[in-house]
Design a protein around this nucleic acid. Sequence first.
DNA 1: AATGAATGAGAATTCATTCAT
DNA 2: TATGAATGAATTCTCATTCAT
Lengths: 218, 218, 218, 218
Amino acid sequence: MVAVVIHWIQLIRHTAYNESMSKRDKSATREKILNAAEDVFSEKGYHDSLMDDIVVASDTSKGGLYFHFPSKETLFMALLDRLAESLLKDVEKEIEKNKGAVAKIQAALEAVMMALSKRRRLAKILLRQGYGLPKFEEKRLEMFDKFASLIERYLEEAVDEGSIPPLNAKITAYAWLGALNELVVRWLFLKEPHPIKESLPALLPLFLRGIGINYVDQ
Amino acid sequence: MVAVVIHWIQLIRHTAYNESMSKRDKSATREKILNAAEDVFSEKGYHDSLMDDIVVASDTSKGGLYFHFPSKETLFMALLDRLAESLLKDVEKEIEKNKGAVAKIQAALEAVMMALSKRRRLAKILLRQGYGLPKFEEKRLEMFDKFASLIERYLEEAVDEGSIPPLNAKITAYAWLGALNELVVRWLFLKEPHPIKESLPALLPLFLRGIGINYVDQ
Amino acid sequence: MVAVVIHWIQLIRHTAYNESMSKRDKSATREKILNAAEDVFSEKGYHDSLMDDIVVASDTSKGGLYFHFPSKETLFMALLDRLAESLLKDVEKEIEKNKGAVAKIQAALEAVMMALSKRRRLAKILLRQGYGLPKFEEKRLEMFDKFASLIERYLEEAVDEGSIPPLNAKITAYAWLGALNELVVRWLFLKEPHPIKESLPALLPLFLRGIGINYVDQ
Amino acid sequence: MVAVVIHWIQLIRHTAYNESMSKRDKSATREKILNAAEDVFSEKGYHDSLMDDIVVASDTSKGGLYFHFPSKETLFMALLDRLAESLLKDVEKEIEKNKGAVAKIQAALEAVMMALSKRRRLAKILLRQGYGLPKFEEKRLEMFDKFASLIERYLEEAVDEGSIPPLNAKITAYAWLGALNELVVRWLFLKEPHPIKESLPALLPLFLRGIGINYVDQ
DNA sequence: AATGAATGAGAATTCATTCAT
DNA sequence: TATGAATGAATTCTCATTCAT
């Protein structure tokens, strides 16, 4: 008898639940966890962040966390994906505002550095957390690849346009990202030089003259 | 009379001591541990390396390890110091073989990449292990600073010589190291592009034209 | 309508909850651990008792133990609290059976010694384990204080009644407890003199005459 | 050949050593170690005191310590013996100054409390360190026995003199020591009541009336 | 989907003791 | 006797993950 009532209750509760949860909001819990994870990982780094920290920060529960993400690694990877996607979208938007391959290249470099210097937590996770281990390193390489492809494409366009002489676009893109990365990290941990105020003005001529554009600071 | 004999004894003992000491060279155990740590850390990364692994690899003992290095962190830091020092010495030697600031700059870039690509384990530890945490990140920044200073010095010399136009030498040095770092890490984990065969030939014109040298590949 | 059903459900669930809870009685695991800790600590002493011993004896798990008690020290303190509370309750019950301050004092002394000599393990832990370190010593002093307060109260009552001349009730209480403690410990480790058969009959006249009662053995 | 010389050297050194060490000074090192051990044990307690702490505090060496005391336990026991002996000697001297059993009893009680309250480190070690373990507990009981015997003797003398009615001298002695112990420990850890200023004046009437002496405070 | 108590294989570090010199 | 580097068994505590509810 009790069992029947409980079953009935569950039906009712389930319905009530679905009613209160709007369809668009796929999972509020999942988002809460990812947001908390962003806080925690950027603060303490991958290894020193505990699943419990994230549970507390997200105001959810152990079981809930593991329901959405089967492991710490999975959670971290999902976070990397979300951050990279968001960053990439921002950068692409900035690029689209410009016409001409050279202008787009310049816009991309500026946008990447701007985005990272405005979102320290994101930068810390994307650039520094959890690396040294193949599984994460490959993820990072994969993310960098996406940004590199973007730059590569415009470099090749510029060559095609005749705006710059031929070059190894892929290696150029990696080198640039590596340089940006290094300067953002210095700022992240040492607070200087400031990416936008100091690094970028010095970097742009270095980069653009490097590919044969006679860059002149405005 | 006794005093004379004692003096004599001391001479003998001193000699014997030096003989036996030369074999063990300033604590053989300490060296064995550092060598083993280099193996283990480069293989497994900082967090996945166990003190026990290092004990076994060094054929010493738990207590011995902790006698020489009070913690895992201390050991890792000592290892970073040793590696950076050794690498820096190699690079400086290569630089000295060249005359003229521009030649020295080029030699430095080549030497860094050469050294790293020849010593994968060293590169893996120096460039990727344990980072993300302030304590280690600061060490890495400190090591990079040493290399950057080297490059910076020759860049300033080149400006003084009139070989290149004025520039922000510090940021240029960091950018270059960041670029090298990125390409070495790609090769470390993905096996390509090869630092010496592919990256360096593309990088040198990029770098040197960037600072106003009309570089032409030989 | 839904609200009504939910309310109904809650009633049912609440009942079910209480039913299942009565079986486990406020964390069965916690109790199992405390019971096991009592066994182990009394057997081996604080320092020679391993957390592993307690895990095994309680038939729970390492993690479970640390879930309930964040450290060995915490566990020991919790155990002391539980034991002292239980002992105090017993003693108070015995006291209540008597009328008149003097009779109550005598009952208290008898009850304390009776309780300790009947529960050797408890006595061993309460009187001897882990002391010498301020953190534990303060706990012991705190526990003794509770017993001392009890005795103190009746001593003052007796003075007020005019049954005994004025005295320093606090110091008298501490002195008595110290004396009982010493004799119980002797018996605990040397097996003699027996607290009830030998010590108490000698102690009562000593104590009671000391406060001005012309005690005569029955 | 070298072996022969070394052997010769050893003979000479051994002789020189004996010459420089005067006969009376059985072992300065041994004393240094015991003094250091007294400091360290009283400060940190038995378990938290490291052999290394004692090595450092005594300005000797690991090997030296183990030459004189084969184990930590041995060292602690030796220290207990030394302290108890010294304390007992002091107390006996005080007793001898008095004539008559009752006066001697009172002198003994005063002397014990005086000695302990003047030498906190000694008291801490003698009364509180390392107990709970049979091996140390027996030692403590043995030490207390010596003091108890002293008191017992005078109690029996007093009975023989007819100064006090018959009593169980042994249990009385233990009870008194337990009481003193408790009050000294309270002062040791809580700083009050002060043994000489507060406890003793309240204790003496309690003790002496307890054995049938019509004690009147001066 | 959510909860949080429970699990247990680690893993760093400790420290009394030994031993070659 | 003295030295201090070396040993390694022992031990507390950690934390990702599981699971009954």
